[in-house]
Design a protein around this nucleic acid. Sequence first.
DNA 1: CACAAAAGAGCAGTAAAATGCACTTTAATA
DNA 2: TATTAAAGTGCATTTTACTGCTCTTTTGTG
Lengths: 72, 72
Amino acid sequence: MHFPEMIKYLKVRREMLQVTQEMLAELAGVSLRTLKQFESGRGNPTLQTLSKLADALGLELTFKVKTLSVNK
Amino acid sequence: MHFPEMIKYLKVRREMLQVTQEMLAELAGVSLRTLKQFESGRGNPTLQTLSKLADALGLELTFKVKTLSVNK
DNA sequence: CACAAAAGAGCAGTAAAATGCACTTTAATA
DNA sequence: TATTAAAGTGCATTTTACTGCTCTTTTGTG
């Protein structure tokens, strides 16, 4: 999952939960400015920031072993 | 997956692949200093840094929906 | 269209991540 | 035990993430 996908995923998740950026920022304990930057693709959040956001959205960061598929 | 677990996971993965910190740092395009700090728990890497490391280890960052379990 | 709420962005200050260099500690093994 | 590779750390510098404030743009609803 690369950058743009992660952003999209979190954004969709937020909207699905009907939470505004303002609410999420507050819930997550992240500044609104930072969240806005992140969602608009202008960011490289720290793991802590990303975790806080994921957490507030009921998500968890995990690793997945990449599989080597021949045909993409 | 929280901070200490992620560190542990990546470290174990690296060792499983018999890769030294030095090799991984080079492969991932991350400075050795940064990797050392991260693995020794003294860090809060940016998403970019974490992604590079995961990538080089054949791992992918993903989100997982947290389930609300009654009895933990 | 008019209005309001939500989202996006410029600017500047502060905090902290990333980096390089040099040194110390730990672990493996001859 | 001596040697050496790998891992860990202190310090200083550079880069950049985080933040608040303010303003603009977009979106949606009457």
